[in-house]
Nucleic acid binder design. Structure first.
Lengths: 351, 351
DNA sequence: TTGTAGGCGTTATCAT
DNA sequence: ATGATAACGCCTACAA
């Protein structure tokens, strides 16, 4: 009774060897399509057959073959996400909340990182498309031509996260980096700083930081001030921050305040300032972006911008689930193509 | 009757609408199996046909349907990974290096997080198995019975990471947490501390930390000393650390040194010590586990243990790729079932 | 080196 | 409510 090969055909030449829907159907003495229906919409199957099927499923340890189901129905419960990196301080919360929201509704996450390279993004998108994913999530609006084409032609929901461009076709879940640059500059201008510089990221491909720089430049122009941009050559973020600080704050006529493309650069600058005995923010104010875990712990603690990382992941997942009909449409934000989130200024000691 | 439509036939009732291998074959005027071979092993196809096929692929923007391929071959290039969390400070580097190593060889990562819950792990493993993954990676040796059974019966490589149990069946890539507990206690004993306590994690399910506690207790017993364990009730790690510090270091006869289940707990204690004006390490030494990003920046900087997070991910991927024949077997560690890594004591100021 | 036949496990379609 | 049949797109086995 225990395991006397219930239904598996005796000499399968191919196949996985696992129980199939036909094995279940035979054991439950129903048609296999009824098993399929029972698993998807139990309400459409009579209680009696349902019970027999459930018993057979349990006895055979039946696990539906999602690959076969995907082929037959031409759509899967896989969602692909391409993100610049997994282990950095920025995107981890987005991935986590995205994955959690998806898996709560039976969808699986296929993940790849691009390291801000459009080529890597393109190859990940191509590979993902081979799985007929239910939806695709990418980071930002900057893609290779081929990627754009693939995303446009895929007949599935596509979400662009971590930026906001109302005129693009994909669902947008993010914030305007230009707006953030304005926010940063205005915060410092309101505090009375006038000689304000912006330090870019030495990592090529981080194009969002350039938008923040543009916002900063815009705010400066509106205030009748000259923008001042510095591009570090050092690659490691702490070193790049130090380099920028030395170039901007240790000159004859030092800058009064510096905005950095991210908190790691700012942290490098802050440590350099400590060593040089510069009083911060009095002699030079520093402002970052990202609100990394280290930022509240630095001395002085780092004034920065907190992006809605977790929120981005969750909203992206909800919009996808809504578009797929996996989640009901309620609430006034339901199924919105444009999801404009905002960043928060975290005012601490450094500015 | 033979429809001579080059690409998409006009009235497909099912199907994705994308170009298939047959469309490519027709356009290139070859058999579809030749296209299949060309895509997998170009060397087996003549240069002439290869060129025709390549042209057709490009013209049709053909993307192989991996779902169909997976069904036909009963194995996919998907690898599933279940990890306690994505956004915490511990596992992100493992995920990143694992994903990078896999994707460099054309494999895709299906990811889910368990939050240290065996139920969530089980449901993720079950869902992953539906995709006929090429391999499966889980964290640690502690699984539900059903998970154990599924892993044992899946005819694929299974890797257990972040721990090391030579007698288990799965491929092991990690370190002995008992050994780490010994390391921690011995480091403090060597420094002359005698009254040493261990603070557990308030997060249930982190069973590895209990192994470290056991190692600590073992070392204490060997030194003829009494172990002293504290279990915080506060849930947030910083709060739990503070609570432990107050209970252990601010008593009449305070402990001399405290080992924490992770760096966040230690950081919470350290900040509490600063506020209370306790000199560290002179009045009380603190030691963490994990070497989080904040740890070198604290004052005093935190002495801790650095686990080989990145290495775990990379070696896990390599062992899988070797087992699947995707990577040649060379080097004496090749294809080892037991991969015992070591943790490093990072000696800083706090102990 | 290239081609033919048939099956992988499920679901859509249509019929009862 | 339930079932028979035929795809879904590719790959294995075997043949030429």
């Amino acid at each position: 009774m225990a395991d006397e090969k219930p239904a598996a055909s005796t000499r399968k030449r191919r196949g996985s060897g696992r129980a199939t829907i036909h094995d279940v159907a035979r054991l439950a003495q129903v048609g296999s399509i009824t098993v399929s229906r029972y698993l998807k919409q139990p309400a459409q199957v009579s209680t009696e057959l349902g019970a027999r099927i459930a018993a057979a499923v349990a006895q055979l340890h039946y696990v539906p073959n999602l690959v076969a189901g995907g082929l037959a129905s031409t759509h899967s419960r896989i969602v692909g996400m391409v993100i610049p990196n997994i282990s950095g301080p920025i995107f981890a919360n987005t991935i986590q909340s995205f994955s959690d929201t998806l898996s709560a509704h039976g969808y699986q996450l296929l993940l790849a990182s691009s390291y801000f390279s459009q080529e890597q993004e393109e190859s990940a998108v191509r590979a993902f498309l081979g799985w007929s994913p239910a939806a695709l999530v990418v980071t930002g609006p900057f893609h290779s031509k081929a990627t754009e084409k693939m995303l446009a032609e895929a007949q599935i929901p596509v979400v662009e996260t971590w930026d906001y461009r109302p005129r693009r076709k994909a669902i947008q879940v993010g914030f305007s980096n230009v707006e953030v640059g304005l926010q940063q500059a205005r915060y410092l201008l309101d505090k009375g700083y006038r000689r304000i510089a912006f330090v870019q990221n030495s990592v090529a491909g981080d194009l969002s930081a350039l938008d923040r720089r543009d916002g900063y430049a815009q705010a400066m122009a509106q205030a009748g001030l000259k923008p001042w941009t510095f591009i570090p050559t050092e690659q490691a973020p702490f070193d790049a921050g130090r380099q920028a600080f030395e170039a901007l704050a240790l000159r004859k006529k030092p800058l009064e305040a510096i905005i950095f493309a991210n908190d790691n650069l700012a942290a490098g600058a802050l440590l350099a300032g400590q060593r040089a005995g510069i009083a911060m923010p009095d002699q030079c104010a520093l402002m970052g972006f990202g609100d990394y875990a280290i930022s509240p712990l630095l001395l002085p603690s780092l004034t920065t911008i907190r992006p809605p990382a977790r929120e981005i992941g969750e909203i992206a997942a909800l919009r996808i689930l809504e578009a797929l009909g996996a989640v009901p449409l309620d609430g006034k934000h339901a199924n919105a193509r444009l999801n404009r989130l905002t960043c928060e200024v975290i005012a601490r000691e450094s500015a």
